[in-house]
Design a protein around this nucleic acid. Sequence first.
RNA 1: GGAGAGAUGGCUGAGUGGUUGAAAGCACCGGUCUCGAAAACCGGCAUAUCCGCAAGGGUAUCCAGGGUUCGAAUCCCUGUCUCUCCGCCA
Length: 426
Amino acid sequence: MLDIKLIRENPEFVKEKLQLRGEDGTAIQRIESADSERLALLKQSEKLKETKNKVSDEIALMKRNKLDASDAIAKMKSVSEEIKSIDERIKHFDDVIETELQTIPNLPHETVPAGKTADDNIVIREWGEARSFDFEPVDHLELGKQNNIFDFERGAKITGSGFPLYKGKGAILERALINFMLDTHTQKNGYTEVYTPILANRTSMEAAEKVPKFEEDMYYIGQDDLFAIPTAEVTILNIHRDEIINHEALPVKYCGFTSCFRREAGSYGKDTRGFLRVHQFNKVELVSFCKPEESYLELENMLNHACGILEALKIRYRVLELCTGDLGFAAAKCYDIEVWAEGEENWLEASSVSNCTDFQTRRAKIRYRKDQTEGKSRTGLLHALNGSGLATSRLMVALVEANQNPDHSINVPEVLRKYTGFEIIN
RNA sequence: GGAGAGAUGGCUGAGUGGUUGAAAGCACCGGUCUCGAAAACCGGCAUAUCCGCAAGGGUAUCCAGGGUUCGAAUCCCUGUCUCUCCGCCA
């Protein structure tokens, strides 16, 4: 969530930034008025509480000295009632502010290109070449069928469409990819591996700003008020909820593999073939907590860590800098990585690397204790960044399609062979 | 699922209605001492929010939410979590 103080002190700035994202400023106006009413009441309430506390001390003193305190007690009874009624009104405005704040996205960073839709995103990097085939390449569905490695029909039988079943060398290849990515991030890129729960409670989902705004996109277990995580970002972020991390430990970097679950409500029939859009997929997630002044550098690092995986796998990709209109809710700046799928003849989004600045950490209360030389405020909110490093489903599409042979067999990329134990899928 | 115990500051841990934001110890920071360090001694050491240029002051917070009371860390209710025992079970 945004800082209420920023809205209070500089509402026009906030509205301007939100307009870049296509948000009108009406929610900000509602917050401003609720906030000023709340503050006025808060001052009244605190003044009365000061009186109450003082008189209570006096009553204690009188009682100790065996004096009659009944007048003071009678007076305080009405003061307490007044406090109670004012506090109820404060609570009302708190709720109004809270509800409004939950609908307002993060402000885009000044370097984010202005734009309205995904068409305005800017390609900032391209790596690798399209493969030139001397035969007609087929798509991953055909390859999956020919090699008996993916079985979408049976996955659908077990659960429903969009829940893929991997078989034989397909399952092993998936596992190899995950292990390769985790090993790279832990051994080369300095991340600490975690394996988190894949169900998260409401508080955790709210801290990650996934709920209430996107509640319909989540698989939800009502009996226990738990959500299947749409990304390990949720659970990894919440590792340090309500904590203060010492500056010496920063940056704190985690990578973790989990399955991810997305209902993809509203996108039925859109790119739903095979792995293109699934409800359950596997992903190695990167999360970094760092000092605010370092977060944009860290964003570039994380982008490079994700790209490094694709380069090792020799998969052609491009990086898009998302425009203001296409940014995720919590992101101030975001890069998408798209992989080239030879059979689909299309770019597929395989990763998204975002700097969420203090938007999540504010609600999650993830702070750091500053070096004593860093000014008078001793604690501050950390910046939280997350990135896919990477999601396997679309990566798998690009991987098998790019490495196919005329007989539909698939060559396993060099770096994965020590994980798969075989060099070819046929 | 059944029975019981508990949740206090970075940690350990006192505190069962009134100068308790909270004893004490440890840890940490600064100082004295020392060639330097240790030890000893002295001092400091929560978070958030409001007012204020600042100095400073107010308020809130002893798991969370309600309640009783002039007054709650302390009493009552509900919830969450942790631990122990029993049952069941991967």
